[in-house]
């Protein structure tokens, strides 16, 4: 699905969403209220400049104080890899964007991620993974690193990695594996109206972070929930 198709499905009455240099901002009427949209389109890498454009839009929404939902749409590259970005503190800018989304959530704005293309590494953490609930459309392709690069770093042959990837969701790229680890909560049905599906996600939003429980239930992250629970138990003993 393209961004234009997504926006048409979300906003049958029209919208003010614009895309500039791959950065998505705007909104439109949605379910008797409004829906803010921020994000990255066109496999664009996210650098210091882009992160601050998006965080400004999020903070503007929080300042308005109307608790309108914020949809974070993502088809990005990884973080922008450059000397300039690191010189200017890319870690601060990406963390700032994630914090803005987490503040919005705490301030009563439902935050929903929607990944419909690629995303990776720091760009993924600062956008889609900083929302309360992350949905995907079929064909989405989040990854930490592509398999040829994993082969290079781990010094394992690519064909062996491809074989392992079939049975081990914990390291392999792709939407199914991110669903299995609990990072992606749900895959939407492109045949059904998108606005209704997003509205249902907003209506049924649960408090708290359930990604480790989902990862345990789905088998993609078998031990994380138990480990964090064990730390909490031991910390609670005098």
């Amino acid at each position: 699905m393209t961004l234009a198709e997504i926006l048409a499905g979300l906003f049958p009455q029209g919208h003010s969403v614009t895309v500039r240099d791959g950065l998505v901002t705007g909104g439109g009427p949605f379910a008797d209220k409004k829906l803010h949209v921020v994000g990255v389109d066109g496999d664009t890498p996210l650098g210091v400049d882009g992160a601050l454009v998006l965080s400004r839009a999020v903070l503007d929404a929080v300042r308005a104080g109307d608790k309108t939902p914020i949809l974070v749409v993502v088809d990005s590259d990884s973080q922008r890899m450059s000397r300039r970005d690191e010189l200017l503190g890319l870690n601060e800018c990406l963390a700032h964007l994630a914090k803005a989304l987490l503040l919005a959530d705490r301030s009563g704005h439902p935050t929903i991620g929607l990944i419909y293309g690629h995303s990776a590494a720091g760009a993924f953490i600062a956008t889609a993974l900083a929302t309360r609930i992350l949905a995907a459309l079929p064909g989405a392709n989040p990854s930490v690193m592509d398999l040829p690069s994993v082969a290079k770093v781990t010094k394992l042959p690519l064909d062996k990695l491809q074989e392992m990837a079939k049975s081990t969701p914990v390291f392999a790229p792709g939407i199914d594996n991110m669903v299995a680890t609990g990072a992606v909560h749900v895959v939407l049905d492109p045949a059904k109206p998108l606005d209704g599906q997003i509205r249902d996600l907003i209506t049924n939003l649960q408090p708290g972070d359930h990604r480790d429980r989902l990862g345990e239930e789905r088998g993609g992250r078998p031990v994380a929930r138990g480990i964090s629970a064990a730390v909490i138990t031991q910390a609670g003993r005098g």
Binding site: L102, R106, L129, T154, V170, F171, R211, D212
Partner: peptide, 26 residues
């Protein structure tokens, strides 16, 4: 950063950590 052999679990844990830090700070 992320341990590539467990990349999806590591990436998700980083996101959980950031959310938890914000809760603790708040």
């Amino acid at each position: 950063g992320v341990r590539l052999q467990e990349a999806n679990a590591g990436e998700t844990a980083i996101a959980e950590t950031m959310r938890a830090i914000v809760d603790v700070r708040a």
